[in-house]
Design a protein around this nucleic acid. Structure first.
Length: 276
DNA sequence: TTCCGGTACG
DNA sequence: CGTACAGGAA
């Protein structure tokens, strides 16, 4: 009973703060499930501020699932260039093709069948576009909820705690939590002095930072990105790719094999091209 | 568990 | 120069 009251007060404070300070991202004023899908896939592992211009250009050129489904992958990757994780772009186009043919799945399980749509993105679409009463637990919610409770929560517990806090407007609560996590309850140096719910929080200690990523310079990821950028501009022979990337032939060979397996590139005569 | 981009920030 | 990013798939 007392627990419910604490949570109710904390959520009231959260939503009051959000209504006064919400970041005006373009997708937040939209309910079109396609627009939400595009934004959410772009937002996977990419800061929201950086997604905005990509989202605008993408929606202008591919305003509907059919438009995207019919687009050459080369053009899709061209508009994607700079966002990273190029497989997301192909999966997004593949998802658009499914939707253009079969229509939209009407629940979270159905949405998760779409390429590139996992637990988070499915719940985000269900909540933001379809008004479903579900919590979209992303990295922000995981961190904020863990800090509120003073311990790192496992996925099942996180989902349960989030659903319990949702309130009548799931989309608004989800977005409020993400804003709080991004702007106040940051991973390092959180602004607890500016936090609207500090009095109901156990403090920042519970957050466990992720294991550091390997160096990007000289990595396979850098090579893959360089190959895609080259092939988006023009087809190239294997030798030309070795020359332009500056990596040795063995690594270029491996990268091309992986990219081909993922459906991003394919051989065309004596050259490599972006896959259809 | 590991890998997958590229950018911007302190 | 290290860090973090509205995750998903193999």
């Amino acid at each position: 009973m007392a627990e419910r009251s604490l949570e109710a007060e904390r959520n009231d404070a959260l939503l009051t703060w959000y209504r006064a300070t919400a970041r005006p991202f373009p997708w937040r004023s939209m309910r079109d499930p396609y627009a939400i899908l595009v934004s959410e896939v772009m937002l996977q592992q990419t800061q929201a501020d950086r997604v905005v211009p990509y989202f605008e250009r993408f929606m202008t050129e591919f305003p509907t699932p059919r438009a995207l489904a019919d687009a050459p992958l080369t053009r899709v990757l061209e508009l994607w260039s700079g966002l990273g994780y190029n497989s997301r772009a192909k999966r997004l186009r593949d998802a658009a093709a499914v939707v253009a043919t079969d229509g939209w799945p009407d629940d979270v399980d159905g949405l998760m069948q779409l390429p590139g749509v996992g637990p988070y993105t499915a719940k985000a679409i269900a909540s933001f576009a379809f008004g479903a009463s579900v919590a979209a637990v992303d990295t922000n919610l995981r961190r904020v909820l863990s800090r509120w409770h003073g311990e790192e929560l496992k996925p099942a517990a996180l989902q349960a705690v989030a659903e319990r806090n949702l309130g009548p407007d799931a989309a608004q609560w989800n977005q409020a939590m993400m804003d709080l996590g991004a702007r106040i309850c940051r991973p390092r140096a959180p602004h607890c002095d500016r936090c609207p719910v500090e009095q109901w929080c156990a403090g920042p200690g519970a957050y466990v930072p992720p294991r550091p990523q390997g160096r990007f310079e000289g990595s396979a990821r850098q090579l893959r990105g360089a190959i895609i950028r080259h092939l988006v501009a023009r087809p190239a022979t294997f030798a030309a790719l070795v020359e332009s990337t500056g990596f040795d032939a063995g690594h270029v060979e491996e990268a091309l094999y992986d990219l081909r397996t993922e459906g991003l590139v394919e051989p065309d005569g004596d050259r490599w091209v972006i896959a259809e």
